[in-house]
Design a protein around this nucleic acid. Structure first.
Length: 638
RNA sequence: GGCGGUGUAGCUCAGCUGGUUAGAGCGAGCGGCUCAUAACCGCUAGGUCGGGGGUUCAAGUCCCUUCACCGCCA
């Protein structure tokens, strides 16, 4: 059986984890657990991407060393993964020595293949994206289209990777590996992108201190993507002299393996074009599949039209438990598509599938069985009944869906089985048989069937809800599955003690829950409203002074602007004001106004304005402010 | 502007290579049951399958066109 290597992207340590990170990681965890149950040799990797100017700057702003900043964010990720029950085998950090070795080795190989050269690179650079942009791509010719921050003009000597050389090899690879990128629509995007032609890629940055030094190129650091992508092999010991384990051969270098990268659609190109090209150049095997999933979107019925609300995941875990969150994430998103997140959908899913469905079914079966059979599982098993067939069909559907990463379908199949149990119980009405001694065997078979079907369902759920699955199994006197053989009918022992158990998934009052959330949100909102309050010190940062207008003239080619010369007592300045429509130049001379004296100079129509004249804005129309009686020029306004 | 995707019951979605009265879950209404977490079971809800045109004995399912939204590219 092929080994199975599954990876999350490594997460950038610029922000705390949110729903999106959790989703990707949970998906990988479910796959890892699923394939472990299948008996495959599994390696599950996640980690963090920690280099780059953005991190360097963020750390500096916080007065921390970059690594200290990274450590803190990493701790947050690791704590969350712990809470979510993530069973990764390794956690790679790009700041680790083992990673650096791998990056150096892959560069050595790429260089040996003749795919690196030095060249000049100039253009507009966004430090947030760590990318160069063309002027066209920038908003207003100067702002990053993604971050809306101002791009910097950079001109530097860089190391380039001959990506253009891999156009044909990549297309050939795509053609011969129809499952290289999934879903298919994403694969099409990638193919078209490559067909349109590939430009060589800058793979180094000059002057980047927080990065891996580029071997053989003094003063250059490895560009973040070449750095980051290599994590997938560095964690396996690639580049190390004598790896203690044989991870590299078992999970990447050898033949009988499956490598699966799970990524969000935002990093499609890096994983499906750059990464394979790097590997081809380095003479290394490629991953089998890059599977691209969509995003969780938040319905913004509330005002804020800008940026979607970030969904914090901790409160959900606090309230419902990690397993319920995991279940929801997999059940309510069609893998590969976008999905909408809402608290309402969450509660509804929780109540219908887990509380009313699985939880309640366990509860009614356990209660009946305990009552009828002295606190034990029924004494007679049964090998011929509709539930047996239902369970077999459900397991087949479940496994087919899981193999295709159709988690929603897999879980639906399990819910259907639970539904069949309830149906079966209503048809057989076991509660009516409890007091009839002569029906004891019939009753036993009925309850045993129900319990056994639940056992199968719970086993199937174990990759998705490891803890809850064990709890269900314990409640019905069964064991957690050791392998898929345990999904076969007949695993429930007879006359096993049935513990008295609490509700596994207590039903949530949806209206109350949503009302409580709304109240919290309102409280937050009112706090936010108070937020804009500034301290007196902050106000005094603005230096307002009285000044007299000593000269005024219309700005050529502008119908709104006037060029004013104002006397601040100790100095004179030029100020450009957009008041030409309301005030004639001649009328203004001699008037006292209030100006912002410490404003950063700005060019308006080619004239440098060294301040700003204060005016009330009456429906957009400026109305100049002036002192009630003349005061010396330069008097501070406060 | 080019390429691709999506548009099916109030909501979330199934509907493979065209073929009986277009399905499921949730929500809603009605009825049943009482073992269970005010749960569970049954029935009902009559949706022009975005619009228009075409191919066919037969189209949600193929072709053309058009609208809306999304993605990638330019």
């Amino acid at each position: 059986m092929r080994s199975f290597y599954v990876t999350t992207p490594i997460y950038y340590v610029n922000a705390r984890p949110h729903l999106g990170h959790s989703y990707t990681t949970v998906v990988c965890d479910v796959l890892a657990r699923y394939h472990r149950l299948e008996g495959r040799s599994v390696h599950f990797l996640t980690g963090t991407d920690e280099h780059g100017q953005k991190i360097e700057r963020a750390a500096t702003e916080r007065g921390l060393a970059p690594i200290a900043h990274a450590d803190e964010i990493v701790a947050g990720y690791q704590a969350l993964w712990e809470r979510l029950g993530i069973s990764h085998d390794d956690f790679i950090r790009t700041t680790e020595p083992r990673h650096r070795l791998a990056v150096e080795e892959i560069i050595r190989r790429i260089a040996a293949a003749g795919d690196l050269y030095s060249g000049r690179h100039d253009g507009w650079y966004c430090t947030s994206c760590e990318l160069f942009y063309t002027e066209k791509e920038l908003v207003d010719g100067k702002r990053c289209p993604v971050h809306d921050s101002e791009a910097e003009w950079r001109s530097e000597e860089n190391v380039f990777f001959r990506l253009s050389r891999y156009e044909t090899p990549l297309l050939e690879w795509f053609a011969s590996h129809p499952e290289f990128v999934r879903p298919e629509s994403r694969f099409n995007e990638v193919k078209r992108f490559v067909e349109a032609g590939l430009r060589d890629l800058s793979v180094s940055r000059a002057g980047l201190k927080w990065g891996i030094p580029f071997p053989g190129h003094e003063g250059q650091a490895v560009y973040v993507w070449l750095d980051a992508l290599t994590n997938y092999v560095s964690a396996l010991g690639f580049g190390r002299e004598a790896p203690a384990d044989d991870l590299w051969n078992r999970f990447w270098g050898g033949g009988e393996r499956e490598v699966l990268h799970i990524v969000g659609k935002d990093i499609l190109r890096f994983h499906t074009i750059y990464w394979p090209a790097f590997l081809l150049s380095a003479g290394l095997p490629l991953p089998d599949t890059i599977w691209v999933h969509g995003w969780w979107l938040v319905d913004q019925r509330k005002i804020s039209k800008s940026g979607a609300r970030v969904v914090p995941i901790e409160p959900l875990i606090d309230r419902f438990g990690a397993d319920a969150v995991r279940y929801f994430l997999l059940r309510d998103m069609v893998f590969g598509q976008d999905a909408g997140f809402s608290d309402e959908a969450f509660v509804e899913r929780y109540n219908s599938d887990l509380a009313n469905g699985l939880g309640n079914t366990v509860s009614r079966l356990v209660t009946l069985s305990r009552r009828a059979f002295d606190g034990r599982t029924p004494p007679c098993a049964c090998d011929d009944n509709p539930l047996k067939e239902g369970a077999a069909a459900a397991v087949e559907k479940y496994r087919d869906a899981m193999a295709e990463l159709q988690f929603d379908r897999a879980l639906r199949a399990v819910s259907e089985l639970v539904g069949q149990v309830n149906q079966y119980l209503v048809e057989r009405e076991p509660w009516k048989l409890i007091r009839q001694e002569e029906q004891r065997e019939t009753l036993s078979r009925i309850l045993w069937n129900g319990l056994e079907a639940v056992r199968v369902a719970a086993c199937a759920l174990s990759p998705v809800m490891p803890t809850a699955s064990s709890a269900v199994l314990a409640a019905i006197g069964a064991e957690p599955p050791a392998g898929w053989a345990d999904l076969a009918w007949g695993g429930l022992a007879v006359e096993r003690p049935l513990p008295e158990s609490e509700a596994l998934f207590p039903r949530i009052d949806k209206d109350k829950y949503l009302a409580a959330l709304a109240a919290d949100t309102e409280a937050d909102a009112s706090e936010e409203e108070q937020d804009p309050v500034i301290s007196i010190d902050r106000f005094f940062e603005t230096e307002l002074r009285v000044a007299t207008i000593v000269a005024a003239a219309a700005v050529p080619k502008s119908d709104k602007l006037l060029q004013l010369t104002v006397d601040l007592g100790s100095s004179r300045r030029t100020v450009v004001a957009g008041i030409a429509k309301q005030y004639g130049a001649a009328d203004l001379v001699g008037r006292q106004v209030v100006v912002v004296a410490n404003l950063e100079p700005a060019k308006l129509m080619g004239i440098e304005s060294q301040g700003m004249v204060l005016a009330a804005s009456d429906d957009g129309e400026p109305v100049l402010l002036h002192p009630e009686r003349p005061v010396p020029d330069g008097t501070r306004v406060r």
